[in-house]
Nucleic acid binder design. Structure first.
Length: 284
DNA sequence: CATATGTCCTGAGAGC
DNA sequence: TGCTCTCAGGACATAT
């Protein structure tokens, strides 16, 4: 489930790799179905071994490693992927090992790993041109971390979708997933089933404000490690934001904001939505 | 065109 | 105990 805060935490955690040269790439043998690696492993190896990492970045929910060849290595964790510089949770689900030359820079880091329990994620190499194509404004909306109320309104106000569903649309706004959509709408005091077309300008502003507030707070706590314990930062440490959720995964418990309402769970687009019936009233 | 549904994948947990 | 079934939800393909 890594969303913006988890992916941003992983990105920051691999910043020590900047300045390091890639010396080898290996795919550990694995009884599981292999993850998507593109282009093929030999081609990937040929194109990145010998290059140096010059920058890390984030494209929505993807970790981007920029190389001095102008190619970008993009890690897409989807549900259970992790980008690590420390030992992984286990070796069974280790999917790709990138060996770094730690002598190129004084740093303890000597490897960059991709680990993925369910294997829905991928590691892909993009040329600068391909990268622009794949993650340009047509594919990815403004980053949620600094999206404005006006941007949200312009992109979504004519939509008939429920606001919770619309916030998951990465072309509208990038980085929000199921967990943070629930937390954002709770803080903004908007019912998740409200149609976008029914929201007023002040509502869009409140959603933008709540988005900045929730995401900044979640990054401060290094993301949310849920019950399955999968998510870890780049050093294989758990996030702590799960202890501060107001509604997510808290059905039947008291709302973290008003502490009067009991959190309800509903289903929208086959995904769980959590909200407080007291804070988040449906307007008609 | 916008919106909705199906698909991929693994492991945990429920139920019998 | 050990089997089968359901569920979790990222992004994308396909259907309505």
């Amino acid at each position: 489930m890594p969303e913006l805060p988890e992916v941003e935490t992983m990105r920051r955690g691999i910043d020590d790799c900047i300045g390091c040269q890639i010396v080898a790439v290996q795919r550990p043998r694995c009884r599981l179905k292999p993850i998507t690696i593109a282009p093929t492993l030999p081609t990937l190896r040929h194109r990145i071994v010998g290059t140096t990492i010059v920058k890390t970045d984030r494209a929505g929910k993807r970790v981007v490693v920029c190389l001095d060849s102008d190619d970008a290595l993009v890690f897409e964790p989807r549900m259970t992927g992790l980008v690590l510089v420390a030992d992984p949770p286990n070796t069974e689900h280790l999917r790709l090992c990138i060996q770094l030359d730690s002598q190129t820079k004084k740093s303890s880091t000597s490897q960059l790993l991709y680990w993925d329990r369910r294997g829905l994620g991928s590691v892909k190499l993009f040329s600068a041109e391909q990268f622009t194509q794949a993650f340009g404004p047509a594919r990815l909306g403004p980053d949620a971390i600094d999206v404005t109320g006006k941007q949200l309104r312009d992109r979504l106000e004519s939509s008939r979708r429920a606001i919770k569903v619309a916030l998951l649309d990465q072309a509208a706004v990038a980085g929000i997933g199921n967990l943070y959509a629930a937390e954002i709408l709770c803080l903004a005091k908007i019912h998740p089933q409200t149609a976008c077309s029914q929201l007023r300008p002040a509502d869009w502003q409140r959603i933008a404000d709540a988005t900045h507030s929730i995401l900044a707070e979640a990054i401060r706590y290094e993301g949310s490690t849920l019950g399955d314990g999968t998510y870890r930062n780049a050093l294989n440490h758990e996030g702590r934001y799960q202890n501060h959720h107001r509604v997510y995964d808290r059905a039947g418990q008291r709302c973290g904001i008003c502490s009067r309402g009991k959190v309800k769970r509903i289903v929208q687009c086959q995904r769980s939505t959590f909200y407080c019936p007291c804070c988040q009233r449906l307007r008609r």
